[in-house]
Design a binder for these strands. Structure first.
Length: 127
RNA sequence: UGAACAGGUCGCCUUAUCGCUCUCCUCAACUUGGUUGGGAAGAGAGGAAAGUCCGGACAACACAGGGCGCCAGGCUCUGUGAAAGCAGAGGAGGCCCCGGGCAAACCAGGGUCUACAGAAAGUGCCACAGAAAAUAAACUUCCUAUGCCGCCGCUAAGGAGGUAGGUAAACCUACCUUCGUUAAGGCUUCGGCAGGUAAAGGUGAAAAGGUGGGGUAAGCGCCCACCGUUUAUAGCGGUGACGUUAUAAGCAAGGUAAACCUCCUGGGUUGUAAUGCCAUGUAUACCGGGGUAUGAGGGUUGCUCGCCCGAUCCCGGAGGGUAGGCAGCGUAGAUAAAUGAUAAGGGCCCGCUUAGGCGAGGUACAGAAUCCGGCUUACAGACCUGUUUUAUAA
C-alpha cells in the first residue's frame, strides 16, 4: 500500500456518520484548523477523513476548493501521525476556521499539531 | 510610433517528487458472478464553467370544455436559426454639434443613442426650485368695460393734438388749441368691494404652440397671415415601417408603462433534489376526538366552475422504521463532490538601473454537477483589424 495515498475508501462520505460526528464528536484544535472526531463502529478497516470550509466565510467556490485541497494534501502527507494497529478507527472532520486564506505551510503546521493532539488523546482514552 | 473608441482572438509554460477521478490492459490474493491491492497506457474545468434571465432536448404527469390568473415577446424588410436570438439595410423618435432664422414644440446638415405597441381608458408618482407640477383654484401683476359704496371737483377734472424743456426714447413738467359736462339728475378723478383675465411672474428636466397684426376696459387662437403641430378622410410614392399632397376639424393629452395597467402575438404544468428500478424496514396495530353514500376523500395545468373515480378519511398523543445502491450520466464526470500540492526554472507585465542586471514585486475574473443554443455580468495582460487624432522621425 502506498505510504501517502488517499484513496476513495478513506474519504468520509456517509451522511449518517457525519451527522453523528457533529452530534457527539470530540474537538481538537490546531490553528487554523479544528478537528472533530469520533470512533467508527467496529468492522471498519481504515480511518476516514473529510474537510469543510464555511460558505459564509468564503463566497467563491474557487477559494473553498483551494483550501480543501490544501487541507487534504496536508492530511495525506501527515496521517502517519495517527495511531495505527488494532484500536477502533476514527472518523475525522477538519474544519477551516479563519476568514482569510492561509498558505500550505500554515495549514500543514496546524494539521501536524491537530493530529499529534488527537493521537495522544485517543491513546489515553483507550488505556 | 503613441493615444482614444469599436469589433475579434488568446487568456501562462516546462521539469522533478508525492497524490486524485474515470476508461482500458495486466499481475496477485480471496473467489460463483465478482471484490480488494500493485503496475503500465490514455483522458481529465471555462470564455465566461458564473448570474440562473430566455429558448430547446430529455423525463414525469396531463391532454371534454368555460372563466380568471401567470410567463415571454412588441417599428419594417431581408438573411440566418429548431426556437430564443443574432446580423445587415431602412423608418421614426430623443440628445448633442454646426448653420439659417427676431424667435419658436421652427428649418437644413452631421454625429450618437433607442426594451421603439399604447400616456387621447383609468390609477399612482414627479425631489429641489418655483405663485403654481397638471381637474382646476389661490397669490403677485394687469383692467375698472359692467354693478355697488365712499371721497374730490364743476373757476372743472380729464381726454386728444401741438410746442418747449429735462433726456435720444419712454416718462414727467409747463404752455397753447380743441373736445367735454351742470344737481330728484348727469359727468369725471382717486380709493375700495364684487367682477374680468391666465396674456405677464425665469424657477425648473418639463409651465399648456412661435412671430407679426387686428381686436379689447385689460387680456386670451378671440380673429387673421406665415410657420409648426394633432386627428380623420382621400390621392400619390414605397414590398413595408412610413413619407408626401389636398381637404375637414382642431391647438390640447408635460414626463414616467425599466410603476400598476390596456392592446396584440405566443406558451399544458413541473424540473435531473425530475423520473425509473433494486435492496432494506414496516403497523390495515394502540389511545383520544371528528367527518362520511344527504358523497368522506382522491384525480383533473396555478385557481375556480365543470368533469371523472369513489369507501373509508382527517386531527392530536405515544411509539416503530427508512434515509443504501444502480440507472438517468455523456471518450471530464463526481456525489461532504477528482482535475491538486511542493520545489526549481522560464515567459509576459511593472519598478529601479549605465548597456549588463536587480526584486520575499505582479500574473486577472473565476471552478463543471443532465446536456445543447443564446442573453447578461466579471476580467491582469497579450495579439489582430478598422476609424479618428496628436506629436516625432525619415
Amino acid at each position: 500500500m502506498k505510504q501517502h495515498g488517499f484513496p476513495k475508501a478513506t474519504h468520509l462520505k456517509s451522511k449518517k456518520l457525519i451527522e453523528r460526528l457533529f452530534k457527539e464528536g470530540e474537538k481538537v484544535k490546531g490553528y487554523p484548523l479544528l478537528a472533530v472526531y469520533t470512533p467508527i463502529e467496529p468492522g471498519a478497516s481504515t480511518h476516514q477523513a473529510g474537510f469543510s470550509v464555511s460558505k459564509r466565510k468564503f463566497k467563491h467556490a474557487v477559494d473553498r476548493n483551494l483550501l480543501k485541497r490544501r487541507m487534504r494534501e496536508a492530511y495525506r502527507l501527515n496521517k502517519h501521525l495517527l495511531p495505527g494497529g488494532e484500536e477502533p478507527k476514527l472518523a475525522i472532520m477538519f474544519i477551516y476556521l479563519p476568514a482569510k486564506a492561509a498558505d500550505f505551510m500554515q495549514i500543514e503546521k496546524g494539521m501536524q499539531k491537530a493530529l499529534t493532539h488527537l493521537a495522544y488523546a485517543h491513546k489515553k482514552e483507550n488505556t
